[in-house]
């Protein structure tokens, strides 16, 4: 019988290893997998790369991982939300690597990895600092930047309901980057 459900959060996050790349769903406070993030904090994995839209706020979730020095790198579009104190402290002290990605490019890079694509050409960021060092191409007079897929070892997401086959249902704007 197929049953993808796991009985407790600690078991769910147990395979996350030191140095793992972890995607975390959520936009603002909507769709944050709070229980899984707390379990990851308790689990102790270090040197994590976190891919998320924001870089946490307050003391919980991604912020708690940053506070405890467990994150090596953040890949996100908007790390500077009100209350992103732990990200800001780590960044200012030079203790963390930051890769800023335009939000639509971030979502599409994640989608591309999941869809088996080798990347895509986007007009976003063409001619800006965020396109520096990247391949560009002009098509019918429009400039595009080549963006590679972005994959992770694990993804932590929040859903409203699920079944044993792994089908999930999301609540309003808590869907965010999840397909």
């Amino acid at each position: 019988m197929i049953d993808k459900r796991i009985g407790d959060l600690a078991t769910a996050v147990a395979p996350i290893f030191d140095g793992a790349v972890v995607m975390v769903g959520g936009f603002g406070n909507s769709g944050i997998p709070a229980g899984l993030l707390t379990a990851l904090l308790d689990q102790g994995a270090r040197e994590l790369t976190i891919i998320s839209n924001n870089a946490g706020a307050g003391e919980d979730g991604i912020s708690s991982l940053l506070r405890e020095g467990r994150v090596r790198k953040v890949i996100c579009s908007y790390p500077r939300s009100p209350g992103s104190i732990w990200f800001e402290r780590r960044y200012e002290a030079g203790e963390i690597e930051l890769e800023i990605v335009p939000q639509g490019t971030l979502a599409e890079r994640i989608r591309a990895a999941g869809a088996g694509l080798g990347g895509f050409l986007t007009p976003t960021a063409y001619g800006t600092l965020l396109a520096e060092g990247k391949e560009t191409r002009e098509i019918d007079g429009v400039g595009y930047v080549f963006e590679k897929p972005l994959a992770a070892d694990f993804a932590l997401i929040r859903a409203e309901a699920g079944d044993r086959w792994g089908n999930l249902r999301y609540h309003v704007t808590a869907r965010n980057s999840i397909r």
């Binding site: 579009s77 908007y78 500077r80 990200f87 930051l98």
Partner: peptide, 9 residues
């Protein structure tokens, strides 16, 4: 820290 969000898109 820079923060771009959806502005470039």
């Amino acid at each position: 820290p820079p923060a771009v969000g959806g502005a470039m898109d």
